[in-house]
């Protein structure tokens, strides 16, 4: 089994490396570079050449990539396009804030999603299932910006419980933007629950229809024991991978929510950076998000291996 874990790990590293290459090449391929963005209309002739030399943009791409990659590995992302701020500093607090958001959504969402999914699966086609499934479909169809906007409408404008816009800076202690955090988290949680719940429901239905559950029934095992000891362990195994994917989605889909709530996280930083053509920042944030995604998937893979006896065993019979 250690061999399989090592292989997964190596593949993960390859993927992260590929991502870095794609990002770098992508940025290279775009017309213009940091200098054209800074100088804008003045980007030509001597001024352009001087800028490029100052920023090190005149060295060959491969060398720049190597330098950048080496930096990334050490956590050193360089400076933002304006040359004003260290990216690492900019990013630091926002990573914390985005992680808080994701963690909040996960902590509430995952247990809730699993519970609802299991209940819906067990009560298939009866009222709990219809209620939860319909709710899930509705939640999935509402875009995040819509949900966010509606929540602001209700809680900020009509009820006035929370201020509508976050004005706190990124490095403020979390308590200061707590109300916005709650709303933003709620939106994310809702959407996440919808996706995960449907998947778990399908998994539970399949497990309950399986032959080993039928056998357990005919062995005289009481219903609830069958559910918890026989069906759920099998039904929830694939959930690990789904949860990993959801975490990945949280990291990506959080962009819109952060913009609506003006939440000081990575997502908003990304959108701002793109608008300002601050490509080094874009590169850095993308790498962080992608690396986290790969890391989470790796953990999920390893967990799957550890918990699923069928994947583990080398003694498995040849078919």
């Amino acid at each position: 089994m250690l061999g399989m874990i090592a292989r997964r790990f190596a593949l993960g590293l390859v993927t992260v490396w590929l991502v870095s290459v794609i990002i770098f090449l992508g940025v290279e391929a775009l017309p213009g570079d940091a200098c054209t963005a800074i100088l804008e209309r003045d980007a030509h002739g001597e001024a352009l050449a001087a800028c490029r030399e100052a920023m090190g943009l005149d060295t060959p791409a491969l060398a720049r990539y190597a330098e950048w990659a080496a930096g990334v590995v050490q956590g050193e992302f360089g400076m933002s396009a304006g040359g004003q701020e260290s990216i690492a500093q900019m990013v630091g607090y926002r990573v914390r804030n985005s992680l808080l958001l994701a963690a909040g959504a996960l902590a509430v969402g995952i247990p809730l999603a699993i519970t609802l999914g299991v209940v819906a699966g067990l009560a298939r086609d009866r009222w709990p299932d219809l209620l939860f499934s319909t709710g899930a479909i509705l939640a999935m169809t509402i875009p995040e910006f819509v949900a966010a906007t509606v929540l602001i409408l209700v809680f900020a404008i009509w009820l006035g419980w929370v201020p509508a816009i976050v004005l706190t800076p990124a490095d403020a202690p979390p308590l200061e933007f707590f109300p916005e955090f709650i709303l933003a988290s709620t939106v994310l949680t809702m959407l996440m629950i919808a996706h995960v719940m449907r998947m778990i429901r399908a998994s539970v239905i399949e497990a309950m229809a399986s032959e080993y559950v039928q056998m357990a029934t005919l062995k005289g095992v009481p219903y609830w024991r069958i559910v918890f000891r026989h069906a759920l362990p099998n039904a929830l195994l694939p959930a690990i991978n789904v949860i990993a994917l959801t975490v990945a989605w949280l990291l990506g889909g959080v962009v819109v929510v952060e913009v609506v709530f003006n939440y000081p996280g990575l997502g908003r930083l990304l959108v701002d950076a793109i608008s300002e053509r601050d490509l080094p920042v874009v590169q850095a944030v993308t790498m962080i998000v992608a690396a986290t995604y790969v890391g989470v998937n790796l953990v999920a893979d390893i967990l799957s291996l550890a918990l699923n006896p069928r994947l583990r065993s080398h003694r498995a019979r040849q078919a």
């Binding site: 593949l11 390859v14 993927t15 992260v16 590929l18 991502v19 794609i22 990002i23 992508g26 775009l30 017309p31 213009g32 990945a248 989605w249 990291l251 990506g252 889909g253 962009v255 819109v256 990304l270 959108v271 793109i274 608008s275 053509r277 874009v282 993308t286 998000v289 992608a290 995604y293 790969v294």
Partner: peptide, 22 residues
């Protein structure tokens, strides 16, 4: 599949935003 994984690792909306900006 490695390439697909790598592309899927990019935060969803990002490539769209970048390409459109440019």
């Amino acid at each position: 599949m490695r390439l697909v994984d790598a592309f899927l690792a990019l935060p969803g909306i990002l490539p769209l935003l970048v390409l459109i900006t440019v």
